[in-house]
Amino acid sequence: MARRVLFNLFAWSIVLAVAFPLFWMIVTSVKPQFELFRRPPTFLPDTVTFEHYRTLLARTNFMIYFRNSVILSTVTTFVVVFLATLGAYSLVRFRYRGRESLAFLVLFTYLLPSVVLIIPLYLMLVSLGLSNTILSLVIAYTTFALPYALWLLRSFMAGVPEDLESAALVDGASRLGAFRDVILPQLLPGIISTALFTFILSWNEYLYALVLVNSDGARPLTTGVMSMLISAFNIEWSLLMAASVMMSVPLIVAFAFLQSYLTRGFGAGGVKG
């Protein structure tokens, strides 16, 4: 028993150490500005205040960035998951020339660094007159989100027993009918998981947003919040921490309600191949 208690203490102190920066983020965001610079620093705030959140929402562009991020990530997720679901079905359950090479291409692009594509993409989007638009980011995000989603869904699709589709075909369904009636319901957890990952990936993206957008109207949260850090003469850490917390809200929601989907996606992702 004593050993168990000791082990738990040891394990939990590591876990808490890992989580400390996140705890510190939340604590800082609710401390009044003057308390930040107190020495020694207070672990739990003496006075809890939400003034930074109010400032953030009322007096900065945060809400615009937030709205942009929501639109951007949602659209990207829908487009990518739609394309990838059909694509994965095709890659896993159909036979045609070039299928193997395509699967190879998907895996290759899954590993491809963004900086290789960014210069030509920048030139392309500028010449299309799309720079500084949310659409340009949706297009750019597809370059990493689509291979990622395809790869994930391919593995989920392979997990749906082939017999189910065969049974539906014998029972009189067409290929697409079998897809809708039988495969799609089985694939749903995988689709949710993939959508979640795609959304988080888009939500967190920084490089493309940095290069392709430099107007506040189209800027997503990542570059938007960083611009608040850079433009401020006097860095308001509380405000930045409040922004960080707000920015992590979708993630916290995902963790609270959809954690099993997150872990599932992990298995299907890179590791299992």
């Binding site: 027993p161 017999d163 189910l164 065969s166 049974a167 014998v170 029972d171 009636d181």
Partner: peptide
């Protein structure tokens, strides 16, 4: 009509 080894019932 076909009966499969795995039964292939729609879950």
């Amino acid at each position: 009509a076909m009966v499969f080894q795995s039964y292939a019932l729609y879950p």
